[in-house]
Design a binder for these strands. Structure first.
Lengths: 234, 234, 234, 234
DNA sequence: CATGAATGAGTCTTCATTCAT
DNA sequence: CATGAATGAAGACTCATTCAT
């Protein structure tokens, strides 16, 4: 994405590059500190000073890189949203939008992402909720994108199966349901209670659940040489 | 205090009665005010003074009835949790734990509860999230109960169908999924965007999704000594 | 102004009265503290905490009575403006708008007000200047009122003398000049250097200066039976 | 200022010269930027960064040329004071310390200086007031010089008229009054309200006012048999 | 000399909570 | 019981100033 070719931009070379990298580092260090603390203690329970301390910078530095505390959360949400979409998206790709996708994505999300990034989950599904109008807006945006991704995948999958959906809205609704399932399982079994050992089984079963759900929303099969459908009259 | 009763249970007579009633009223008035404001402006954005003003009492009065601001939220969550469980539970009852339950409960929740009590939904699914350890604990408790209710219903339904589940854990997992689906649909389509007119269609489809999901987690039918079940061969 | 007759308003009696008085006291104590500190150390150099300390209240109490620090200054300016106008206005009254007014008012202002309330002078002529748009607005309002008072007095004096002014605008301009003279003398001789002992002489001479200035802006005398005018010799 | 004859001091040649010039430019650019912003937004409302941005230099550069923010204001005041004294002084010269001086100076100040340099007026009469002990000190110094200039002019004028003053202090007091009049007229009619079109009339009338004032403070004329003036013996 | 990232002390302001009346 | 004035700890944020590069 951020391909900065080596060709023609010697205008900002050597020193600036290091500066840039350092700047990005500082920025990221602060962001990481915020992520850790928000995830552990909660957004409101974390003060800027604590973040600065953990990042080993001054409070002023935090404000040099971020407009205010809210932006810290907002940026974090963007990042997490990005990671999540990437993880999920790649898994759909790898599964070639087959029916196995559900299982694979469930494993990727629950068995991998959640276990590796509990703070991200905590922030995304807990700390960023209901904090302010602005944050809620951002949250919505990220969710909508994620949902949209899944919806698109669903559509591709259905096409792969040569099936249509009951209604126009079905794919989106399914996506919303799936996101809800992921969210709640993550909260219920990982944030609230540590069932991390059984997470694979959860992934397995939830995938089955979702698959069944999706199947139910396919439009009735219209077999070309269809003889009896339901209620075949005489 | 002013015990002047003549008989024996006049110990709490007239005035006290009114006191009691008034007290309960007071308490409820305050709770209602909090509900309204928390739902509209958000928990942190609402001050005790605002609640007191809306309830037409003093700030001190709020602290007479509630230990602190948190308890206001906590009590509200209890109440909302209770209402929700009642609404859902009654619907399962009415549906006699048939497979239609899913549809009926979906309608009861999305088409009725959510539309009638948007603030409750906002508080339960948004404002009470990630506010503090205590609140999160309470939130968990309520969710666990609700999930448990649904799990029990699921089990009864499965029994009614003469089916078992794939694993021991399936019923609970299904319940968690269902709660997640409700939650996300409510947030996505009612809190974030007003699709209240199309809510019935959502209920319909989400019910189908859930039903399909549940079906997928039934253990494979093993009709050993089975007489006729469905599709009795031969 | 605040006539609270004893007749019909027993609705807010006894206790409330004391409350009110106490409230007003607290309010005034804080205001006095602010006046002292603003006058001595300057507006920006004074923190709310210092004010609270001097007033022997908590910082919260300051914010209970005043919206913010700015309002403290604004209220002070109003009060000072009021006092000043009263002092000046009463002196014009007492002098019956004669030509002696200039002398008497100069004495009242320089010889009395300034000496008795140096902090008020400091706040009005120094600390309230150029602090913020809001404060400047207030400052303008007070100055305009004071100027207007003096203008009206000037007009009455001129009438008493049976004279008219050179132009329509003259009275206002004179008032502006007079205010400027007072201001600068106060700053120059009292805030910057302590010439308080010679203040009476200043008052005397500045009054003469103003009187001469006013005379110069009277329209040329048009003596009814006037033959030759000035210095008709012989 | 830095008159460097061509003879022996080639020690600081070419490049250094440019450096010097550039340095002076830099310095002035920053000063101009500060002047503009202080005049427009106010001293406290202007940050060093904004000044640096407007001057197209770094914040560090500002601190290379000026000790601190205060010095920026201080230098500005010096400059403005200098300009003002020059404008006024030249006008007295041109008028040859005649009685017309008052009129001419009024025109020079109100009709020319104020209209051409509103920011200077804003800084001198508004933004530099009551900011800190140091600034106030500087302010006093400049005012004292300006007042002294005018006092000297007044004395020359009186001599030109062959008049003496009522008291020793009169000339200074008159100067103070005159400065006050200028200040207040500028604030009232130019900073607070834009009466710039009627400024000439103001100049006219205020000059008349001042002239009248001065006349009033001349000692009573006693020239009757006056041939020789002072101390005619015998 | 110039830069601009980094510092951190300093302040205002909020608000849940208490308690004298 | 009710009131609401008073508390004061806590925290976000600003910005003049410095200094390594």
């Amino acid at each position: 994405m951020t391909k900065t070719g080596k060709t023609d931009d010697d205008a900002v070379p050597r020193r600036s590059m290091r500066r840039l990298r350092e700047k990005e580092n500082r920025c990221n260090t602060i962001l990481k500190a915020a992520e850790t603390l928000f995830g552990q203690k909660g957004y409101h329970q974390t003060s800027i000073e604590e973040i600065a301390d953990l990042a080993e910078v001054s409070t002023g530095a935090v404000y040099f890189y971020f407009k205010n505390k809210e932006e810290l959360l907002t940026k974090l949400m963007q990042e997490i949203g990005h990671d999540l979409r990437k993880a999920v998206g790649e898994e759909y790709q790898k599964s070639e939008f087959s029916l196995d996708s559900f299982r694979n994505v469930a494993f990727a999300f629950l068995g991998d992402f959640c276990l590796r990034h509990p703070e991200k989950i905590a922030i995304f599904f807990r700390e960023s909720v209901g904090q302010s109008v602005e944050v809620e807006e951002q949250r919505k945006r990220v969710f909508v994108k994620l949902t949209s991704d899944i919806k698109d995948a669903i559509i591709r999958i259905s096409r792969g199966q040569g099936r249509n959906f009951a209604t126009e809205r079905s794919p989106e609704l399914i996506a919303v349901c799936i996101v809800g399932i992921y969210e709640r399982i993550a909260c219920h079994y990982l944030l609230w209670q540590d069932h991390s050992t059984e997470v694979l089984q959860m992934a397995e079963e939830s995938a089955a659940f979702m698959l069944g759900g999706v199947n139910s929303l396919f439009a009735p099969d219209v077999p070309k040489t269809g003889r009896r459908e339901k209620k075949a009259p005489k």
